[in-house]
Simulated assay, not measured.
Amino acid sequence: MNLLDVLLDPLDYAFMVRALVVAVVSAVVCAVLSCWLVLIGWSLMGDAVSHAVLPGVVLAYVVGAPFAVGALIFGLIAVALIGLVRSTSRVKEDAAIGIVFTTLFAFGLVLISVTPSQTDLNHIIFGNLLGVSSSDLVQVALLAAVALAVLLVRRRDLTLFAFDPIHANAIGLSPKRLSALLLGVLALTSVVALQAVGVVLVVAMLIIPGATAYLLTDKFSRMLVIAPAVSSAGAVVGIYVSYYYDTASGPMVVLTLGMVFALVYLFAPQHGVIGKQVRSRWKKRASKALV
């Protein structure tokens, strides 16, 4: 089997084509958002929102509504509850996040255990990328388009908020509104990625691409290009590997992204552990040669 056959054989199956499209779309929108999450330090917030949507998905199934509606509602509820606990008590933000997301996630697990279903609701937790339907594909594409459009339209304001919220406030921008906007997009993006990798692994797609790009460049504009490129490539490679080695597709996508991050962590020219040392040695040798 030559390389062309390896690339084209999976595309003979409609479910593989849908899986690839959903994975790439999810990877791109998650990666773009992850650039801001990494800069602001909202990794735990991404984990919280992605887990908190679980009861919304189960309840949406019970009443026959689209999964995305229930997930989005509970994502926004989680954000509101975290803000409420943080602002009306002595509990700090990280504790508020932990309390809200673990409670809502446990609520979702209880609902799954008591809900009679002909559908395997465990797919919500671990993902069912190969079982994505045409309607799911359209839903993911629309939600991703909305999330990506908001991020791109407000990218300058959000970037200023990420780097210097005090300056943003001084020039007339509202850090609270920008924070709420970013959290709303986070909830929407979690719903998109839910179709691809499930609740448990959504946080990986929301953090790993941005963290990888952060080690490769010092410019935020380049991060917005590198992160989705790395994420979408990792999604495609992960799905192809899962096809040929018969592994779970969602976890394999995340594992691929994790391996890419490990390589960048070690060998990135400026910020990699080994790459930084090699670069330093070459500089010393160059300076000695010039002397």
Results as ranks from 00 to 15, higher is better:
Lys284Phe: 13
Leu37Cys: 01
Asp136Ile: 05
Leu142Trp: 07
Ala248Met: 01
Ser133Ala: 12
Tyr13Ser: 02
Thr103Lys: 07
Val29Asp: 01
Leu194Pro: 00
Phe101Glu: 11
Leu7Ile: 15
Val197Asn: 07
Met1Ile: 14
Leu181Ala: 13
Tyr214Arg: 15
Ile40Gln: 03
Gln277Pro: 00
Ser232Ile: 06
Pro251Arg: 04
Leu257Trp: 02
Val29Arg: 01
Leu142His: 03
Thr212Leu: 03
Ala227Gln: 05
Leu129Trp: 03
Arg177Ser: 04
Val185Phe: 02
Val79Lys: 10
Val29Leu: 01
Phe163Val: 15
Asn122Lys: 12
Thr212Arg: 01
Val146Trp: 12
Ser89Trp: 11
Pro165Val: 04
Ala80Lys: 13
Leu104Ile: 09
Cys35Val: 06
Ser242Ala: 13
Leu11Phe: 12
Ile77Trp: 13
Leu257Glu: 03
Val21Ala: 11
Ile171Cys: 09
Leu183Glu: 10
Gly41Ala: 00
Asp164Lys: 09
Ala227Leu: 02
Ala78Pro: 08
Val254Arg: 08
Ile125Gly: 02
Val236Gly: 02
Val21Leu: 07
Val199Ala: 12
Tyr243Trp: 01
Val6Gly: 06
Pro66Met: 10
Leu3Asn: 12
Val237Cys: 03
Pro165Glu: 03
Val278Pro: 00
Ala60Asp: 10
Leu137Trp: 09
Lys219Asp: 15
Val58Trp: 05
Ser50Asp: 04
Cys35His: 01
Ala248Leu: 03
Phe105Glu: 12
Ala14Leu: 15
Val191Lys: 05
Leu188Gly: 00
Val29Gln: 01
Val138Leu: 15
Tyr244Asn: 05
Ala204Leu: 11
Asp246Cys: 02
Ala168Pro: 14
Lys176Tyr: 10
Pro66His: 09
Val69Cys: 10
Thr256Val: 08
Val197Asp: 06
Tyr61Trp: 12
Val291Leu: 15
Leu143Ala: 02
Gln270Gly: 04
Val69His: 11
Gly198Lys: 01
Gly210Tyr: 00
Leu216Val: 13
Tyr214Gln: 12
Ala78Phe: 09
Gly127Lys: 08
Arg155Gly: 13
Asn2Gly: 15
Ala145Ile: 08
Pro10Ile: 07
Val114Asp: 03
Val191Met: 13
Leu151Val: 05
Tyr13His: 02
